[in-house]
Write a protein that binds this DNA or RNA. Structure first.
Lengths: 225, 225
DNA sequence: GTCTATACAACGATAGAC
DNA sequence: GTCTATCGTTGTATAGAC
């Protein structure tokens, strides 16, 4: 693994564990048994490191949501696809939780990153809009345009700030992957009043699936920290 | 006005305007045309100032939610009371928005404040639980215990992180009071599927009331910054 | 590429005169 | 109560040898 990658990796780990603001460039270097000077050979400054992490985040996001394949054949998908999206979100939320935990702070400190963030998120919400419209076309979701939009934005806010919310609830401040999975039933709860009765059964199954996931990761907690 | 109060006042203003972490004790002193030494005569350190602000916040919260009057005569109230609560929340969110905008950060930096925060919030959510149960008893709200609890926690998260969410949406990062009012229709939207049909009309009136409020403050924007 | 050593700036906080 | 002056610490970042 290249030194640059090692630094990025260590930075993510320390940021997640101790909070981005509590981790200095010296900490990162020390954690790698490396001199601060060496770190600055590979990165201009701390912001530069965070930006590199953001790029990784964007990469994974595009990959998981299939935003790269410009094959034009975007599968609308049913509730199974919704589930895949939720898994992607939860995975990213865990992997890059320091971003979610201090979003306003990180964005307000660097205008470039704020712009980058919005450009990363935008296509995802385009995709989600099309996905919800698809669910409605299939008769799974029963809602007018206005309600669909409200649901989308509500979901957006709840998802983005879920790690931050967990952070305020836990005294020590350390959240677990199982806790992150806890957002799924909440999102489903918001959609339930708008689900077609026939689809409720499948939704229940998906909810069960996520509950199992949550307990699985509760067992192997710390392994994939 | 006593110097101590002036400092608190200035601190709140600067924190709200520029973000708590971007405001140093020197900035506060300079803003008041005062020496740093003088500021430190009145407060032991920066945390001390923030704690004082927290105490003010708690005071106002207790006042607005009537948590002081231990007369035992807690009026359960209908939707008009819900409205009063919403106004209280929005008002506090605006007045102390820097707290809401960087909650995880502020709490993680100071364990004492984290505990204080939880002790401030707790009775409010007790009150809100009783209020929602009251609405159900009056036939305004139709939901089982589980759904009521889910609604409460969802509302809690949406409200607390509304200013932070707005912060991520606005490029400059400066939010307005009118924008803060925007959370009200979202909260109402979450409850709508569980409202009794007879109550929907009154809900619509309340929504109109808040829309007017929002445009009013849009006009006098900056006056009560 | 990596190290040691160090410059530099910012901020928090204090001492002591008035 | 308020000032001026200043210290100490910490974190960012660079210079220059290896």
């Amino acid at each position: 693994m290249k030194t640059k990658d090692k630094i990025i990796h260590a930075a993510i780990e320390l940021f997640n564990l101790q909070g981005e603001q509590n981790v200095t460039t010296n900490h990162i270097a020390a954690h790698l048994g490396m001199s601060p000077g060496n770190l600055y050979y590979h990165f201009r400054n701390k912001e530069d490191i965070i930006q590199a992490i953001f790029d990784r985040y964007a990469e994974q996001l595009n990959l998981l949501f299939g935003l790269d394949d410009n094959s034009g054949s975007e599968s609308v998908g049913g509730l199974r696809t919704s589930m895949r999206y939720m898994e992607a979100v939860v995975g990213l939320m865990w992997q890059f939780r320091f971003i979610y935990e201090n979003l306003p702070d990180i964005l307000s400190r660097d205008v470039v990153m704020a712009e980058k963030y919005r450009q990363i998120q935008e296509p995802v919400y385009g995709l989600m809009t099309r996905h919800l419209l698809g669910l409605r076309a299939q008769g799974i979701l029963l809602a007018n345009d206005e309600d669909l939009d409200a649901l989308l934005h509500l979901m957006k806010q709840v998802l983005i700030f879920w790690p931050a919310y967990l952070h305020t609830l836990t005294p020590g401040g350390n959240i677990t992957k199982a806790m992150v999975y806890g957002v799924v039933p909440r999102v489903f709860f918001m959609f339930r009043p708008y689900m077609a009765p026939e689809a409720l059964d499948e939704l229940r199954q998906l909810e069960q699936y996520f509950q199992d996931k949550a307990s699985q990761s509760r067992v192997k907690e710390g392994v994939d920290a």
